[in-house]
Design a protein around this nucleic acid. Structure first.
Length: 521
RNA sequence: GGCGCCAUCGUCUAACGGUUAGGACGGAGCCCUCUCAAGGCUCAAAUACGAGUUCGAUUCUCGUUGGCGCUACCA
């Protein structure tokens, strides 16, 4: 995280890009367009979170779309931490952002922190002031607030400040009176700020409807608009892809870019992710489901999560839904992004969108056993079970089609991990159309059979089926009591694989206990 | 309030102005089956409303309604 340097370079980093960055890093703020010294256009996108909360899934999606756009076009992905709000920044939040991004496993090519570039922001703000395109506003920080945000009138500017003679302004500034620097939005002529959004198309807004927004606060800290534009220009961002909540801010940003005399980047705004109640996602209102780490901790696979987020507000325009990372990169384009907000479907009972869960289950099913075992192992160990990897490898195929989230393994396969089964109702041991006596008979027969059978799936099945024949009962009636005796419940993974994975000793022990329970009924 | 944006099944979405409005998730049912899953098949389910343009509007235009965003010396 050193100043303005490239500290995070990993896979996907293009050699040409590297050359480009190094060669032109020092060439300051003249041109925004991202051409490198060879004259070849260099596409550069950025993700700019502010560390004022955990990494939220909407932000994660913005990051992912930027990343896909960069990778699809062979461009560079820049991570920029927008930490100019010193009041609200927290180290924990910064950590949460990195944690979340690392989990997504999508590397960025450059990293910058705005707090280390304040001099640049101020310099650019002052340059705008020197051109007469900004003015000092000496209104005390709080005072103006009330009248501005009055219920009816729209606040645009304060004429006293805007029209203040330069001499008076200079004198008061020299006297040390604090002031905010405001952009002087053109008002003498009717003008529309226009741009073509990559998603929303032609956009236009009259300057008469744009207020004189602040560039610098009275403590000389840059505002978001100033810092963001200054850095976008300096870092030669070619495409700004961000949430639709910035669509109307873009008009202000264009005014800043113009005042700076730099070329405009391309803009593309993303439809917002909203909660089922139609409001935007917030931790206070919707709880931890809006945080990326919640998904990670519940046992989502990073790619399934990415896949899910991609499907919210974007479509490959064909019927594909499950897509690999390569397919996503290949298929991604701004044309596939639609314009209406997307609801993430969650509730108190189901904290995760069913589609996300399904995508995750699909990934799990498609995963090789060894890999699944490696991912399951930490979950099992974190729950306090000391289980050998080879045991987990045996269990993995039994749970693969029965878990949707990694953490489900604890509920589905707990009986593999415990020494002693938790208590269960002995009545569960009694098979359909049978009684306790039959259950005992079945279990005793099973004990004998298992004791002299090889513990492999096929041998076990053959032995138990013929045992049921000997007893003159249906196979199902034979299997039921054994399943409950061994698993402690009626629903469990397939019996023979379960017996094999559990091993002879444990099976016989548990069947013995079950017989005991039945006898004391 | 002002300004901007959006509107297809419950949810995510597809549809050169001409389709029985398609797919997916979820739901329901059937099949398979040692339980539970997985899998296969089937069903229910949508163009917000009103005008206009057109031989013909989900699609183009206008209006209505609803929703979202911005309107901070937050980002």
């Amino acid at each position: 995280m050193r100043r303005g340097s490239i500290i995070y370079t990993r896979v996907c980093f293009r050699l040409s890009a590297a050359k480009c960055f190094h060669s032109k890093r020092s060439e300051a703020h003249g041109q925004l367009a991202a051409y490198c010294y060879t004259g070849i256009f260099m596409l550069r996108v950025r993700f700019a979170p502010s560390p004022t909360g955990f990494l939220h899934i909407g932000s994660a999606r913005t990051f992912i779309f930027n990343w896909l756009y960069a990778r699809h076009n062979g461009g560079a992905m820049i991570l920029r931490i927008d930490d100019t709000d010193v009041e609200r920044n927290t180290a924990a939040s910064l950590e949460s952002i990195f944690e979340g991004l690392r989990w997504l496993d999508m590397a960025w090519d450059e990293e910058h922190h705005q707090s280390e570039r304040l001099a640049l922001h101020r310099e650019m703000a002052d340059a705008i002031f020197r051109k007469g395109l900004a003015y000092r506003d000496f209104t005390p920080a709080q005072a103006g607030e009330a009248e501005k945000s009055g219920a009816h009138g729209t606040w645009l500017f304060n004429p006293d400040m805007r029209e203040m003679p330069r001499e008076e302004s200079d004198r008061r500034a020299a006297a040390g009176e604090p002031f905010a620097l405001r952009f002087r939005v053109p008002r003498d002529i009717v003008r529309h700020v226009r741009f073509a959004d990559g998603v929303y198309g032609e956009q236009s807004k009259a300057t008469a409807d744009i207020e004189d927004f602040a560039l610098l606060r009275s403590d000389r800290m840059p505002t978001y608009h100033m810092a963001s534009c200054a850095d976008d220009a300096d870092l030669r961002i070619s495409h700004i892809i961000r949430g639709q909540d910035h669509l109307t801010n873009t008009f202000k940003h264009i005014l800043i870019f113009e005042a700076l005399g730099v070329e405009l980047p391309q803009f593309a705004h993303l439809p917002l992710l909203i909660a089922p109640d139609g409001t935007k996602l917030s931790k206070r209102r919707h709880g931890p489901v809006v945080s990326v780490t919640t998904y990670r901790d519940a046992g989502f696979l990073p790619h399934a999560f990415v896949n899910f987020l991609c499907l919210l507000g974007w479509s490959p325009k064909d019927d594909r839904e499950r897509m690999s990372r390569e397919e996503l990169i290949e298929a991604f384009s701004l044309e596939g992004i639609n314009r209406s907000n997307a609801v993430i479907n969650f509730s108190e009972e189901d904290p995760f969108d069913p589609k996300a869960v399904w995508l995750n289950a699909e990934s799990i099913r498609a995963m090789p056993v060894e890999e699944l075992a490696d991912r399951l192992a930490p979950v099992v160990r974190a729950a306090g079970f000391a289980v050998a990897r080879e045991q987990i490898v045996k269990i993995a195929p039994l749970v693969r089609e029965r878990i949707k989230l990694m953490r489900d393994v604890l509920a589905v396969a707990d009986f593999f991990f415990v020494k002693e089964l938790p208590p269960y109702d002995p009545a569960e041991l009694i098979p359909k159309k049978g009684d306790a006596a039959l259950a005992i008979k079945v279990l005793e027969e099973a004990q004998q059979t298992l004791a002299q059978t090889e513990f492999s799936h096929d041998a076990l099945e053959a032995a138990l089926r013929s045992a049921s024949g000997r007893l003159g009962i249906k196979a199902g009636q034979m299997f039921e009591p054994i399943r409950v005796a061994v698993c402690g419940r009626k629903t469990a993974p397939p019996l023979f694989g379960t017996l094999e994975a559990l091993g002879c000793e444990k099976c016989l022990h548990r069947i013995g206990q079950a017989i005991g329970k039945l006898q004391s009924l």
